[in-house]
Every structure is written in structure tokens, then in C-alpha cells.
Design a protein around this nucleic acid. Sequence first.
DNA 1: TCTGGGGTCCTAGGACCC
DNA 2: TCTGGGGTCCTAGGACCC
Length: 437
Amino acid sequence: MKLDTDHAIALVDCNNFYASCERVVNPELLTRPVVVLSHNDGIIISRSNEVKALGVPMVAPLFQYRDLLERNNTAIISANHALYYEFSHRVMNVLTEDIGAEKLELYSIDEAFIDAGVPDKLSYLGKHIKNKIFETTKIPVSVGVARTKTLAKLANNIAKKSAKANGVLDLYDSPYIDLALRKTAVGSIWGVGPRSAVHLEGRGIKTAFQLKNSDPEMVRGLLNQFGARTVLELNGTKCLSMEVTERDNKSIAHTRTFGQPLSELVEIRNALLYFTTRALEKMRWNGLATKTVSVFLQTDRFRPVPAMYFKTHAYKSVYHSDVTSEIYGWVETCLDKVFVPGYQYRKAGVILSDLTQTGRISNRLFERRDFERRHVLSKIIDEVNFRYGRDVLRFAALEEKGGWQGKSEHRGNDTYHHIGRDTLGQGKVFSKSVRFL
DNA sequence: TCTGGGGTCCTAGGACCC
DNA sequence: TCTGGGGTCCTAGGACCC
């Protein structure tokens, strides 16, 4: 397959995406600082520019910044993922329908790479994309254009911050590429995390420009193959191609911190069956079946009682299934392996892996008819719950709410609550799961 | 008092088998 | 004196991303 070596890649990234969505549905927020919180209201996961200017970092505990935010009249809002899926869908539609992007890679809920074609008025294209998306959806975006994904990421970061760029930067054959790289800390490059940055700095590689001029083999030894690839990408050599075709998830998880520590097996079992139900809904929504389920239990990260404990166990079935009642049994087997009395558990999760398309489930000679009946029953329960509300229909094993549930107190606009039921994507574009915060 | 969740990929080391 | 070694499967944990 040809990599379209000379084609430019544009990265379109929504600014402060969750906060921006909240502002579209509630324009009063346009004149106030805005933060959006994680599901338990514990963590700040999206900030408007005013909040960033206050020095509030990404993924910060709310309690540490609450006073500062309130003094500045900040709107504090619980996350509404269904709303963000809806806006994501709208933004991507502008790219495919209005802009006519033929190759689009949905990289996360708020950003996409597109093939910008042969180099011709690239900054004009960037401005057009930015204006068209804002005109249609009211969501502000930034556009970075370059020869490689890594450089497009960099261009996008600069476009977002620089007043001069005003949201659009073209670094395709630009004389300013090296200048931009000189001004960029090595740890700000896509794929270079804090640990790798420390290693590189130890070798005197402090800027992106120095990394560009490093020996890829040396970097491979110091980091890994990804590091070496990043060096080539910084030099304008495409190593990462556009992943245009949707691929199925390799795993689907539902993990939660409990509202309060739990030590009783019964309560933890209830929580895990609930988590399993949610994960299976998402799995069936994507037309998948699982063969391996993993369950983990964990004590409080910050205040473990009576000691730190983390344990995971995987149950491997000999066949795939998407039948709730059956997979409940697999989960209970795992729970028996990881549960030890005496710990105060704070977090637990269910992870479904070894996923395959339901259509490819092999026939089970002896129990085929029963399996099909239960498979259909599970689908019907999903349908009913989707139309009439979560868990209107549920298995007797699934208990009512327990002490494990958290709370979302800052829920604002209710308009979109009927969409998606939180864990489900909507429509064709999001029939597969999308990475989100 | 309060500190998230969902993913991917990679590696080390133990258990076990032949 | 001597303590094989390769393969595979598993969990733990690191690193990175949004």
C-alpha cells in the first residue's frame, strides 16, 4: 500500500472540547470560566481557557482547586458523555460532508487526522475547516498541517497557543519547522511521555530539534522502536499511516471507584455484576462477543486499609459468548479468585477481551439452540433498556443501587440525557468505541 | 471529608512442560 | 563439584495516549 508520501496530513482538534460543548448548549457559560468533572465529580477533565490561565492543570482533583474556581465564578459541571458524542458526530460530519475529506481517521472523540491531499494552499484549507466547523457546530477547533502525524500534532499545539497562528498552522515545507522544533521541549512531542523525556534529557536531548537530529538507533536503544520512529517522523518521513478503516476494540472495560470503601463480598459482587452489565451492553452494541473476562479489586490508592492490595484474575472460556447470564458466571469465578476478606476495597473493574464479531462465534454443538435463545434474549433486554431507560429490564442477579455508586451533583443541561445512556456511542460513526476522557 | 476512566502496546519474571 | 534450556502461558507493571 502506498503511503501517499507527498500528501499533507491535517490534524483537526476541538478546543477544550467538553467545556466548549457545554457552552454551546448553555450560552450563558460563554462569559464564565467552565470546568467539566469526571463521573464521580472528583477530577477536572476539561477546562475553558480562563481556567487554564488560572493555572489549573488537566486531570486535577476538584477539591484542590474548588476555592480558586469559585472565587472566579466558574461554572462546575458534571460530564455528560452523550452530549459530547453528539457534538463529536456533528464535527466529524462537517469534515466528511462539507469539507469532503475522503480519508478521515477518528483519533479520539475530539480530534481527527485527515488526508489534506497534495500541497496547495494548505493554510487556506486549514482556515476553511476551522471556519466551517464553527459556523455549523459552534465548536472552536484548531488545525495543524504537516508531512507527518507527529509534525501535524506539533503544528496543532502551536496553532492552539499562538495568537499569531490564530488556530491554524501549516508546517508542510515551512521554513519555520526547525524554529518550532527548537522552541518545543522534547517532552511535548507526541509519544514522548514524562519518563522518556527524563531519559532523553539525561543524554542532553532537551528540545524537539535535538531529538530530530539524534541517531534513531541510539534513541531506539534508549527508549524503544516508537522512539526511533518519532525521530524519523520529526524529519518528515511518514512512519505512521492514516488508519481509515475502523477496527474492533481489543478490549472493553468498565471500572469504577466506589462511592465509599467496601469490604463485604455481597456488595462487591453487586457492583461487579452491574459493571459487567454495562460492559456487555457496549460489547453487544458493537456486535462483539468475548472469550476472556478479567476482574480486579483494589484498595484505596491513597489510604489503603489495612494494606495495599491489587489483584486481577482472568477467566478464559473455551468459546465466545455475549450472553449476560453466562458471563455473570465467569465474573463470579474471577471474583472468588481475587476477593480476600479483611480489605477495604475502593475500586474494581471488569475487562472483556479476546473479542470477536458475533457472527463468527463457532457453533456449540451440544448447546447451540439454548445459546441462541439466550443470545437473542440479551439483545432484547438491550433494546428495551435503551428505549425505556437503563435496567427497566434486568436479571434478578443485578441488584438495585448500592453503596458502591458515586454521585454526579453538578449535572447541568438535561437536554441530551436521553441520548446514549452514557456508555453507548450513537449513530454510525460511533458504533465503535472512541477514546475519550 | 474530597484525588477518574478507557484504551494500546511492551517487558520482566514465575510456573510449568518437554 | 555443580546448578540445561527452550517454549508457553500467566500476572504484574511500565509507558503512553485522550
